[in-house]
Design a protein around this nucleic acid. Structure first.
Lengths: 109, 109
DNA sequence: CAGCTATATCGATGGTTGTCAATGTATGTG
DNA sequence: CACATACATTGACAACCATCGATATAGCTG
């Protein structure tokens, strides 16, 4: 055993994220890892009353309605958007505190 | 034109992210959208001196060396990690302010 | 120079994902 | 009931991605 190998591998000084926590956090960032989904969040956030229905969202994204519904479902499953059905329409809005909770996932790495 | 269609589509009250900005931001979140890369960031952040070489990282992740190098390259390209070659080893460290800059990408949606 | 070590790159492969067309479901309207 | 509208779901397909084995590169050591 020479000095070269010893110089490399030292024990870490701080606790790190375990595998399970990493999977949980990655699933949220996976929902954010698509430009169209980021635009969806942005448009919903900027809409009147803080909510928007699917018909508001298909045109600015230049995407088909099934694709937009698919992206919205991913954002809902990630806990970022809230879905409320009123009559024929489905209104999507930001989950309160979701953005702050997500930034916490980064700062506490 | 009846009232039902009017009730749906109203103009947005706030400016939103354009397509280009969405792509830029999504590329950063794409780098974060993998559990092993999150653990890499966590381990590097928690290492002595704030830096770690590849040989420190392959074992805790249970991944092959080429795979770890691949993930590290993605994190460097995203502007999250800094790479410094010293002798035979490559030392990776967090780019100062990178985490804060990334949380800003979310808060300013 | 020969050999070893740490790291990067390449090629292949199985799995995931974004998108669309088609269809299903539910709600409102005549 | 028949029809239209808003949205969700399904199936298919091309593009992308995480991983590995093999190989290449670069620095150190004898």
């Amino acid at each position: 055993m020479d000095a070269a190998t010893d110089a490399c591998c030292e024990p870490s000084g701080q606790p790190t994220i375990d595998t399970y926590e990493a999977q949980l956090r990655a699933s949220v960032f996976k929902a954010l890892a698509d430009p169209n989904r980021l635009r969806l969040l942005s448009i919903v956030k900027g809409s009147e009353g803080g909510e928007a229905c699917v018909c508001d969202l298909t045109e600015p994204l230049s995407l088909g309605q099934p694709t937009v519904s698919h992206h919205l479902k991913i954002l809902v499953d990630a806990g970022l958007l809230h879905r409320e059905k009123r009559g024929t329409w489905a209104y999507y809005s930001l989950v309160p505190g979701a953005i702050e909770r997500t930034t916490g996932l980064l700062e506490s790495l």
